[in-house]
Amino acid sequence: MIVVERMVALPAPLDEAVSYLQDFRRTEEWDPGTVCCVRIDEGPVRPGAVWRNTSHFRGRTTELMYVLEVREPTHLVFIGTNKSVTATDDMRFEARSGDGTLLRYQASFRFKGLARLATPFMRTELEALADKVAQRLPSALAEHRH
Rank of each mutant, 00 (worst) to 15 (best):
V8P: 04
V45I: 15
D23M: 02
A107H: 12
V45S: 06
V133Q: 10
A130Q: 11
A130T: 03
F93V: 09
L10I: 10
S97C: 01
M91V: 01
V67R: 13
G80V: 03
C37T: 10
D90W: 07
A134H: 03
A107T: 14
R123W: 12
E127S: 07
C36A: 13
V8T: 07
P32Y: 08
G113W: 08
T124L: 12
E28T: 15
T86N: 04
A115F: 14
D131C: 04
D89A: 11
T34R: 02
H146P: 02
R39Y: 09
S19P: 00
H75T: 06
D31T: 02
V38R: 14
E127Q: 13
R60I: 02
A17S: 14
L137P: 05
D41Y: 08
V133L: 10
S55C: 08
D41S: 09
A140W: 07
A87P: 00
P73T: 10
W30K: 03
A134R: 04
P120G: 12
A130Y: 02
M91R: 11
L129A: 10
L64S: 09
Y20G: 03
A12F: 03
E94F: 08
M1I: 10
V77P: 03
Y66H: 15
R25K: 12
E29Q: 13
G98H: 09
T88A: 06
R39Q: 12
K132C: 08
Y20F: 15
R46K: 14
D99K: 08
E63V: 15
D31Q: 06
G33E: 15
